[in-house]
């Protein structure tokens, strides 16, 4: 399947001399939710801004649905909807007027039925005649999404869509994103909330210091890079990890009633069998055990620190 967005050798150096992107190569598959993770200043927003036409690239090429973003900017931009990180809105406009304006700006004729659907999907219908200045931060964020969806884009960029949004609203937005994906919209999401990427993304890309350091299927990434933790619930309390078990780097938790063993799922020998044998030999008995997988956040932190 050919990518709907293809980024090749994309670099960006600002007038100040700061290089925000260093020869980025990236492909986004049609219909997927792609999470772009990276610390502040990694180049996420610069990359989005170039693809959407807000910033100029220093070199490289971006194709959207096979069209060059500079030569065929009308085609590429009409395919894209953008929800920027900051809440940029016309404070004194009504919700209906600003969303309708966005549709017109993207060259689409009036379609009140579509605007109504978008506003209803985002629970904004009862606010359609309210001025934006009167809305809460979460509502304004929804208005930004409504504006981006007003022209029925095939690709949606969500730059930190749930920043500053409460948990309930965040989950409601996740539902909106899932619905969009189900309708065939490709979604590129940047976020600081790793749980957001973990919850929704099909693939994850990690960008750091202007370079893409990893692109992987989320599930495969977590399996490939993830560490597992084996927690043993002891029958009795111990004061310290016995010396014969020191090689396992066990962690004593739960006030001495739990032992935690961290192992790498990628290695040939996890060491679990020998650990259990050595525990028995040391006279330590346990009543229960469970394992947990490393979160995407832990994987992300380990990658950017590498």
């Amino acid at each position: 399947m050919s990518p709907i967005i293809s980024v090749s050798g994309l670099s960006k150096t600002y007038a100040s001399g700061f290089t925000a992107l260093k020869s980025i190569n990236l492909g986004i598959k049609p219909g997927e939710i792609f999470a772009l993770l990276g610390p502040n200043g990694a180049g996420k927003t610069t990359l989005i801004n170039i693809i959407c036409g807000i910033a100029n690239a220093s070199s490289g090429e971006v194709l959207v649905d096979g069209h060059d973003i500079r030569r065929d900017y009308r085609t590429t931009r009409s395919l894209i909807g953008l929800v920027p990180q900051e809440l940029h809105t016309d404070a004194f406009e009504t919700v209906w007027a600003t969303v309708s304006f966005s549709r017109g700006l993207f060259g689409k004729p009036k379609n009140p039925a579509h605007i109504e659907k978008v506003l209803k999907d985002l629970s904004l219908w009862d606010k359609k005649d309210s001025k934006i200045v009167t809305l809460s931060g979460g509502m304004k964020r929804r208005v930004m999404i409504a504006k981006a969806l007003s022209h029925e884009p095939q690709i949606l960029f969500l730059d930190e869509p749930t920043a500053g949004v409460d948990v309930e609203l965040r989950k409601a937005m996740w539902d909106v994103v899932r619905t969009l994906r189900a309708s065939g919209v490709t979604i590129i999401l940047t976020t600081h909330y790793i749980e957001e990427a973990e919850e929704m993304a099909d693939r994850v890309g990690v960008i750091n210091r202007g370079e893409i350091i990893l692109v992987e299927e989320k599930a495969a990434l977590m399996q490939k890079l993830g560490q597992k933790r084996l927690k043993l619930h002891l029958q009795g309390k111990i004061d310290a990890v016995p010396t014969p078990l020191a090689a396992y780097n066990l962690e004593l938790a739960g006030d001495g009633t739990e032992l935690i063993y961290t192992y790498d799922t990628r290695s040939e020998h996890t060491g679990i069998t020998s650990l259990l044998s050595d525990l028995r030999a040391a006279g330590i008995r346990f009543s229960d055990l469970d394992t947990t997988q490393s979160s995407l956040e832990e994987i992300f932190v380990s990658l950017v620190r590498a």
Binding site: R74, R77, F106
Partner: peptide, 14 residues
């Protein structure tokens, strides 16, 4: 000033 210029720049307009 308010940042809404992003929408003009990202729209398919000459």
């Amino acid at each position: 000033f308010i940042g809404t210029i992003y929408e003009i720049l990202s729209a398919p307009v000459s």
